[in-house]
């Protein structure tokens, strides 16, 4: 059966103009299908993060076409892109970006509250389910800044999952964790992919991590080399 294409980029070029014009992405064409677990690897500075920011619609200063769910991103307004991020993309950063002013539960719920597909009660229930799945339901009422690094990253994954996104993107989500916690996070991704057919696009330079995914996109100096 043909899997539908979730994310597609065609001939994407990206330049930084400060201090001199340099091209950091060169003719990037990739596509990610529903249910795929894709790793992006490459040396530090080869443009992986830059690519991910473009693919996640946060960076709009590029050349080429980006389609998410078949929908062309070019020419969309800032609020439209924000809505797409909210609804279709779950993002996990290298540093565990949680909102320190809120509890763990609220952190997970916030993108859902913004989307307003579910009532607050339903959302609370769903958030607790996600936290339970990630083994951190006991943390729910705690303030976010009280958690350890590994726990924070799991909360970030729960937050990324709250709106049942089309795709989860991660920029070295295990890069700042020790081996044990890194493995936990990787196993979670794997489990999401296998059990829930979740699409994932994860940047990493952990070779063993990459080798355990379905597909590796390797980059060098702004190009895809395999």
């Amino acid at each position: 059966m043909m899997q539908k294409t979730v994310l597609q980029s065609e001939h994407i070029n990206k330049y930084f103009r400060d201090p001199v014009k340099v091209q950091v992405l060169k003719d990037i064409t990739i596509s990610v299908n529903q249910g795929e677990f894709v790793a992006v690897t490459g040396k530090s500075g080869c443009g992986k993060s830059t690519l991910l920011y473009i693919l996640s619609t946060m960076d709009t200063d590029y050349e080429g076409d980006l389609r998410i769910d078949g929908d062309l991103m070019l020419g969309k307004t800032e609020p439209q892109l924000a809505k797409i991020r909210n609804e279709k993309i779950g993002f996990v950063f290298q540093f565990h970006y949680l909102l320190n002013e809120f509890s763990v539960l609220k952190n997970v719920m916030l993108p859902g509250l913004k989307l307003r597909k579910l009532s607050e009660e339903e959302l609370k229930h769903k958030a607790m389910e996600r936290l339970k799945m990630l083994g951190i339901e006991a943390m729910a009422p705690k303030m976010a800044y009280r958690l350890s690094g590994g726990e924070k990253q799991r909360v970030a994954i729960a937050r990324a999952l709250i709106n049942d996104p089309l795709i989860i993107m991660g920029d070295e989500p295990t890069g700042n964790l020790d081996k044990k916690n890194g493995d936990i996070v990787f196993d979670l991704f794997k489990q999401l992919c296998e059990e829930f057919n979740q699409t994932l696009l994860i940047v990493t330079h952990d070779q063993t991590f990459a080798e355990n995914t379905h597909r590796i996109i390797e980059m060098e100096d702004g190009r895809i080399i395999g």
Partner: peptide, 16 residues
């Protein structure tokens, strides 16, 4: 700044 960045990354618009 971090809070603003996360809000935006998770789908809040500039006007929010």
């Amino acid at each position: 700044m971090d809070t603003i960045a996360i809000l935006k990354a998770t789908g809040f618009s500039g006007s929010d």
